[in-house]
Amino acid sequence: MRNDRRLHLETEFHRLLGTPVTGGVLVVSDHASNRVPDDIDLGIDAALLDEHIAIDIGVAAIGARMVEAGTAAWLGNVSRLVCDFNRTYDVPGMMPEISDGHAIPGNMLTPQERQARVDRFFDPYHAALAAQLAQTPPALILSLHSFTPGLATCTRPRPWQVGVLYNEDERAARIAIPWLEAQGFVTGDQEPYSGKLLNASMNRHAEPNGLPYLSIEIRQDLIAEEAGQEEWARVMTGLCREVVGKLK
């Protein structure tokens, strides 16, 4: 991959591209990988690992390109089907048994097996991210995700090109939404779902610590190929610059 030369650190649960700096921007992508460790069998067709149920399509490449522009990126290093980092302990979706109509037999786990994955992936991921944020507090966290244009279990299309999510801290969102609209993008305010409900990682690391964050969802068909990834990396870089400048 073109970003390997910028790989700063890799563990079983995350990859760090670039070098985080205090007062900079840190891209955090919980669902950046479709990797399944060799000792885990999800019991699914391998083709599903390239679908939205396994990975946020396009976000790793966008993060890597933003690193080339001078930021840093914290990328999850296992598929969200193995362990979804953007969840809380008490929800089945952390290791889903069904995802968008697809059964995931390898996630029919005993409580002990589930806890083993938490101990192996989830807890170390969040402990390491917390330590990184404490060591080099950023001016902005860009929580970067992507969404499918439509779910197999729902016929309603998703027309937004980009969505901005937030929970209690709306500071960055209120700057980002009008900026994106001014660029001509069809922008969702709490779409295609609400950050009041799906904001676990930022609820854990940003909101209680007063760290400004921007949760962005980009429609996957726009960033599945290199040209779109390059375009949206430029957009995200410009957006972060705008937000950081107005937050000061």
Results as ranks from 00 to 15, higher is better:
residue 159 P to W: 06
residue 160 W to I: 09
residue 162 V to N: 06
residue 139 A to K: 06
residue 151 L to Q: 13
residue 141 I to W: 01
residue 161 Q to I: 08
residue 162 V to K: 02
residue 151 L to G: 10
residue 146 S to A: 10
residue 147 F to R: 08
residue 136 T to R: 07
residue 159 P to G: 10
residue 141 I to F: 04
residue 157 P to R: 12
residue 146 S to F: 05
residue 139 A to Y: 02
residue 133 L to W: 00
residue 150 G to D: 14
residue 140 L to G: 01
residue 157 P to T: 11
residue 136 T to D: 08
residue 142 L to N: 02
residue 153 T to N: 12
residue 152 A to T: 15
residue 153 T to E: 14
residue 141 I to H: 01
residue 148 T to M: 10
residue 146 S to K: 07
residue 162 V to I: 13
residue 141 I to K: 02
residue 151 L to A: 10
residue 141 I to P: 00
residue 136 T to C: 06
residue 145 H to W: 04
residue 162 V to E: 05
residue 137 P to D: 02
residue 143 S to T: 04
residue 143 S to V: 03
residue 150 G to Q: 15
residue 147 F to Y: 13
residue 156 R to A: 11
residue 152 A to H: 09
residue 142 L to V: 07
residue 151 L to P: 09
residue 143 S to F: 00
residue 145 H to Y: 06
residue 147 F to D: 09
residue 150 G to Y: 14
residue 152 A to N: 11
residue 135 Q to I: 03
residue 154 C to L: 14
residue 152 A to P: 04
residue 163 G to T: 06
residue 160 W to F: 14
residue 150 G to T: 15
residue 150 G to P: 08
residue 158 R to A: 11
residue 153 T to L: 10
residue 163 G to H: 07
residue 152 A to F: 12
residue 140 L to P: 04
residue 146 S to M: 06
residue 141 I to S: 00
residue 151 L to W: 13
residue 143 S to Q: 05
residue 153 T to M: 11
residue 146 S to P: 06
residue 142 L to C: 00
residue 161 Q to M: 09
residue 133 L to K: 02
residue 139 A to W: 02
residue 141 I to E: 00
residue 140 L to D: 01
residue 134 A to I: 03
residue 152 A to E: 09
residue 151 L to Y: 15
residue 133 L to F: 01
residue 157 P to M: 12
residue 136 T to G: 02
residue 152 A to M: 12
residue 150 G to V: 15
residue 142 L to I: 07
residue 154 C to E: 15
residue 164 V to T: 03
residue 163 G to I: 08
residue 151 L to T: 08
residue 144 L to I: 06
residue 163 G to F: 07
residue 141 I to M: 04
residue 140 L to Y: 01
residue 133 L to D: 00
residue 153 T to I: 14
residue 133 L to Y: 00
residue 151 L to M: 15
residue 148 T to F: 07
residue 152 A to Q: 14
residue 164 V to R: 01
residue 161 Q to L: 07
residue 133 L to E: 00
residue 160 W to R: 08
residue 149 P to S: 11
residue 144 L to D: 02
residue 163 G to W: 04
residue 159 P to Q: 07
residue 146 S to C: 05
residue 160 W to D: 13
residue 141 I to A: 01
residue 141 I to V: 09
residue 156 R to H: 12
residue 156 R to N: 14
residue 149 P to V: 10
residue 155 T to R: 14
residue 148 T to Q: 10
residue 136 T to W: 06
residue 155 T to G: 12
residue 141 I to T: 05
residue 141 I to L: 06
residue 154 C to G: 10
residue 139 A to F: 02
residue 157 P to Y: 13
residue 144 L to N: 05
residue 137 P to Q: 04
residue 140 L to E: 03
residue 147 F to M: 06
residue 139 A to Q: 04
residue 135 Q to S: 07
residue 135 Q to R: 12
residue 144 L to R: 03
residue 137 P to W: 01
residue 140 L to T: 03
residue 141 I to Y: 00
residue 158 R to V: 12
residue 135 Q to W: 00
residue 139 A to R: 03
residue 161 Q to W: 03
residue 151 L to C: 13
